[in-house]
Design a protein around this nucleic acid. Structure first.
Lengths: 210, 210
DNA sequence: GTATTTCTGGATTGATTAATATTGAAGTCT
DNA sequence: AGACTTCAATATTAATCAATCCAGAAATAC
């Protein structure tokens, strides 16, 4: 699309990737523009602001990029070809694997990217909080779908499942950043899913619908 | 103990309390010395450094104060008069209640107090990481005690319990900060404890030992 | 070739950061 | 009373923050 004028000398996509890594490691506020410009290929302030607008605008773009790539571990939640149980299990397992992988920073940009924020950067905090709410809603929708399906019989216990799974999901970020192994988390997920299974077989209906 | 010289004009304990609240709300780095001095009674820089040494020294003192008060919700983990199951359940419930109370900031200082940190403040991050490790060890010790007691029969599943409960515990901080109600979390804890109970009754022995 | 457009490099902006120095007031001890 | 000790207010330190400006370089359009 670049029509006229002098072409950019650095690779915008690579710069965005580098910024993602830095934001992921340090979080929004501690990441300084100097560090960003350095890791993005020693670009000048003018180049930076021409290409990305501002630190906050860059971060928003970084979050979108994260959601479109690493964040896709959450996709099973909205994949209705999966059973609700498999959707949640896969989401947990893929999150644990992604957040502990050695190919990227540990932990979760959405949970930890703007954890310590000055009031003036509340918009950034709000942006990530909205994504976490999306996670919550996705898990809740899965549980409700299971009730509609007949996989689960609605009860006081099924009402607690969304908070249970969401709290565990978001807790993975802390454990991953603290050095937990994927094996450890995976095993915990296996045990956690027993909660679902014991609720699924408890009431009358012999076998699940799908 | 104040022997001689002009006595301090501000209340050191109240100042520490105010600093705790501010650090709890914002985290370590975004909390500026100006904000601290203001909330501590408009004290001067000289007074601040004379009384507390530095920002980091103040934070360390704040963390100790937190652990000695709010952090006592974790005490059941090391209370051997409680059954291991009750110790973990009480810890979870008291954490959820404390972190959602309207009398103090939401979330957890240990989990979220230094989440976004520049490399130069790594000592602060390390301080909190060590406390989180203490939580992990406490939960693990409870599970191991249950196995020794005979409350639980050692199996692949019991090996996963420490990570399961710890991940949930640390996840509470995120959910509390995002506005979850204590009722919601409490209900989720009830369901989570079913994991323990189903493991406890599964193997042979009819009733628990104590 | 000339005009136009867009990028880059370097210098600089004002605000804010944590921390220190100086100075004088306010207290205790003998 | 007078020596001594500790505090607090003001001013200031150097460093860093995100962001802007300006001049020159490099490309395209006509």
């Amino acid at each position: 699309m670049a029509r006229t004028g002098r072409p950019r000398e650095f690779d915008r996509d690579k710069a965005l990737d580098a910024a993602l890594t830095l934001f992921w490691e340090l979080g929004y506020e501690p990441t300084s523009l100097n560090q960003l410009k350095a890791c993005m290929g020693n670009i000048s302030p003018a180049s930076f602001y021409a290409a990305f607008g501002s630190k906050e605008a860059l971060f928003r773009e970084v979050v979108q990029h994260y959601l479109a790539t690493y964040g896709q571990v959450m996709a099973p939640l909205w994949d209705e070809t999966l059973s609700p149980r498999d959707a949640i299990e896969q989401t947990l397992r893929r999150s644990a694997r992604m957040q502990t992988a050695r190919t990227n920073p540990t932990g979760c940009l959405i949970v930890q990217g703007a954890c310590n924020c000055s009031p003036e950067n509340q918009p950034v905090q709000t942006l990530l909080a909205a994504e976490r709410k999306r996670n919550r809603n996705g898990i809740k929708a899965c549980v409700e779908r299971a009730v509609t399906n007949g996989d689960l019989t609605k009860s006081a216990a099924t009402d607690t499942l969304p908070a249970l799974f969401t709290t565990f999901l978001h807790g993975i970020a802390c454990e991953a950043k603290d050095g937990d192994r994927v094996k450890t988390l995976d095993a915990a997920i296996t045990t956690l899913m027993h909660v679902w299974d014991s609720l699924a077989m408890k009431p009358g209906s012999a076998s699940s619908s799908r």
